[in-house]
Simulated scan of single mutants.
Amino acid sequence: MAIVRFQPYREMEDIQRQMNRLFEDMITPTNRQDGVDLAFTPAAEFDETDDAYQLKLEVPGLEPDDINIEATAEAISISGERQSETKAQRQTRSEFRYGKFQRILPLPGRIKHQDVAADYKNGVLKLTLPKADEEKNRVVKVSLNHS
């Protein structure tokens, strides 16, 4: 039987590498949708006013032509692709995410999908989704029958 020398620092380095790999996979998973690898999922923020829903997505580094927005009465779909600007032969390190992305967000109520307004500034996409008239008037008086 061979004697193996215990090297605690090497063991700790191995554990650190495994933990780094685990956390990196948790933070930036590779998504798959419809057989296509998605590079990232943009962060979203959703607000509601009396007349409309407000949706913001973080999509920095894109031109407006790189973003595709599709709206139905019940959901909104945002997709696009971020491409690398550099064509370097050797890249030392990059934490940027390139490739395709897609978010499909179901809405809590119906919207006038033909009146959706979009604005893109400083890497933030802002959508104004006007509520359908029947959604604005959701409060209904219920009469009580006496027996």
Rank of each mutant, 00 (worst) to 15 (best):
E13D: 10
E134M: 05
V36Q: 15
A2H: 15
P130Q: 08
E134D: 07
K121G: 01
S84T: 00
R17G: 07
I27Q: 06
D119W: 02
Q7A: 11
E11M: 11
S143E: 12
T92A: 13
A117H: 06
F96P: 00
V59W: 05
K136I: 13
T49V: 04
F23H: 08
E58P: 01
Y9T: 14
F23W: 06
N31K: 10
E58K: 06
K131W: 00
S84V: 03
P29Q: 01
A71V: 00
E11P: 00
G123F: 01
I78A: 02
R5W: 11
D115V: 04
T41R: 14
R93I: 11
Y9N: 08
E85S: 13
S147D: 10
T72F: 03
G99L: 00
R93S: 08
I27C: 11
Y98Q: 00
N122S: 14
R90L: 09
D115K: 12
S143M: 13
T30R: 07
E13H: 04
M19T: 10
A39Y: 08
Q91S: 03
D25S: 15
N31Y: 11
D34K: 06
K141H: 10
E135Y: 12
K126E: 03
P29D: 01
A73G: 02
G35K: 12
R138C: 01
V140C: 05
R5Y: 09
Y53S: 09
F40L: 09
R5I: 13
R17H: 09
V124L: 02
N68T: 09
Y53H: 09
S84L: 00
F96V: 07
G80V: 00
D119A: 08
Q102H: 10
P108A: 11
V36W: 15
N68R: 11
A132C: 06
I27G: 07
G123C: 02
M26N: 09
P64R: 13
I15R: 13
E48D: 04
D66R: 02
F96Q: 06
Q54E: 15
N20Y: 12
F40Q: 12
R110H: 05
Q83N: 09
S94C: 13
S94D: 14
A44F: 15
I27M: 13
D25V: 07
L22D: 08
L57G: 01
F96C: 04
T41P: 02
A2C: 11
R97N: 05
R17S: 14
R110W: 06
L129K: 08
D65T: 15
I76F: 07
N122G: 06
Q18K: 06
S84Q: 05
A75I: 12
Q18V: 09
G35V: 09
F6L: 10
I67H: 00
R103T: 04
T72H: 02
K112W: 03
P130E: 12
P8L: 02
Q54R: 15
D14I: 13
N122P: 03
V139H: 01
S94P: 05
V139A: 01
N20R: 09
E11A: 14
V4E: 15
S77M: 14
R103Y: 06
V59A: 05
G99K: 00
L105A: 09
F6W: 12
F46G: 06
R90H: 12
P60R: 01
V59K: 05
A44G: 14
A43C: 14
A71M: 05
N68M: 07
A71P: 04
F46N: 11
E81K: 03
T92N: 08
P106D: 05
M12D: 07
Q18L: 06
E81N: 04
S77A: 13
